[in-house]
Write a protein that binds this DNA or RNA. Sequence first.
DNA 1: CCCCCCCC
Length: 624
Amino acid sequence: MNNLLSRGAIAAIFRGENVSCPVLQLLACKKMNAAASGKAVDRYRLMLSDGEHTCTAMLATQLNEMVSTGELDVKAAMKLKNYSCNPIANDRRVIVVLDLDIVKKGSEIGVSIGDPTPMRAPGQGGAAPAQQQSRPDSTVSHDPPQTARPTSYGTGAPASATPNKQGTFYGQSNSAMGGSTTSPKKVQPISSLTPYQNRWTIKARVTNKTAIRTWSNARGEGKLFSMDLLDQSGEIRCTAFKDMVDKYYEMIEIGKVYFVSRGTLKPANRQYTSINNDYELTFNNDTMVEPCVEEDVSIPAVQFDFKSISHLEDTPEDSMIDVIGVCKSTSDLTAVTIKSSNREVNKRSLQLVDDSQKEVSLTLWGKEAEDFDGSGNPVIAVKGARLSGFGGRSLSVLQNSIFQVNPDIPKAHHLKGWFDSEGHSQDSQSISTRQGSGGGGGANTNWMTFHDVHAQNLGQGEKPDYFTVKGTILFVRKENCMYMACPSAECNKKVSENGDGSYRCEKCSKDYENFKYRLLLSANVADSTDNQWATCFQETAEQLLLKSAQELGSLKDQGEATEKEFNQVFQDACFIDYMFRMRIKMETYNEEARLKCTCVSAQPINVRDYTNKLIKDIRLMASA
DNA sequence: CCCCCCCC
């Protein structure tokens, strides 16, 4: 038992030695109540022992759960895989435990090992204070350091006046702007950074962090990630390349505060960022990033610089802007094939409205599009959306954007109140004239009757035409409404039966043991003027039939037993009204030109939108 | 040193 602890480790750490993975015993653990201390989260104060000395430590909040679950109990022996030793007032030190492994549970040990006495900071002649962290690749040291010397107690110079061996030191109590008088190295505001100085330290919150991305071009290849840093004075975008990615990617967490010192500052290109700074920061070999272990509420959270939607009309295309609005409606999820890369990606458009009574279309991509739920008209805030010129003006959420749903900020509450009380019933004008496939029904929808569609020869051009029509389902074809599709999530291609119970997908060039049903439904849609056959793919077809492809497939598979029920599905789908968003295009099939109409979305009639359309029609007739 | 961010 006596060999369990790293004897002498605490003295060595206090002298500034790099003690790797010391094993210490937890003698006491006290919860510092968050509410009482005015902090955001509870903190645990620990008393640790190496068998010779005890010292005070704080548990990093991400490890709080180890205490609350009982995993870390009093008398436990723990290996400090990552920690820092920081000076506090009166030359005292506190160890902050950043990562640990339990070596033996307290319930198994049961006693305090050795007869430790309280450790105090080294005095004059002692080594510098440590701000070091153990390296993950260093060897585990259970043995007491061979170099251990008798601890000298005394009244030396303030520990915090001595830089450590890395040459930097910052008191953890510094504010972002001034720094305490005991700190030799001032933390300076982000807004003061320029390329013309190279020794600086900032204390900033990470407000955004990208995934690691790789690139390969004529100038070489590599990987990078970028992050946004914020303090009271401003913000800056930082990028880490290659080695720096390995060094810092894991450490950086969104929302946390870090000390960052040194790095390369270069002019920012506003085309690629909405971060309000003339410069960007690139990490280099001299860059040091260290987590600030105490949550500092004086370092603010995400900063927006919202532009009203009406303002976007006269903002240049391709600008990066911050926007906030109520999500008035959303389109269905649609898959888009990217021409350049032949990749498929999901997208969804939202219609945002604000109290300038203007609407704009905002496109989400990939997972953000898939996960988005617009029910209940949430407030959407985006930092760093790209303003495109499509259909007038529309917005796109990029990788670097911060996308927030119902953010807890005053402007969001204001807009929600506005929308609930009056905005929802007011007319708003979209600055995105051609909407995504959403159909919408807003002021700029191109409403058509089938008569007009045919009379105006829509779909004859090179590009397909889109229109919205209020129509009624007259008939849906049950024959061939389903096909056996490749079971792989990304592939929906038709499979063929191999005859041995397996299924062949030619697109994947692969045999599968199963398949999934996909719907490909022909529906005859009519309004008072004419009718049109339209093709409905999976999602819209499921919507019109009020059944999933899987359910319908199972009814079909059961044959006669469920034939009646199967047929009923198609009966029930008829004579229901929808607002259809249609795509129409003339296509040549077996040397025969045929007008192909695809239903992009079908939505229940929005009475307000449809009534507005009728009122407009009536006004037009009256003025004619 | 990235900076592509897609589609209608």
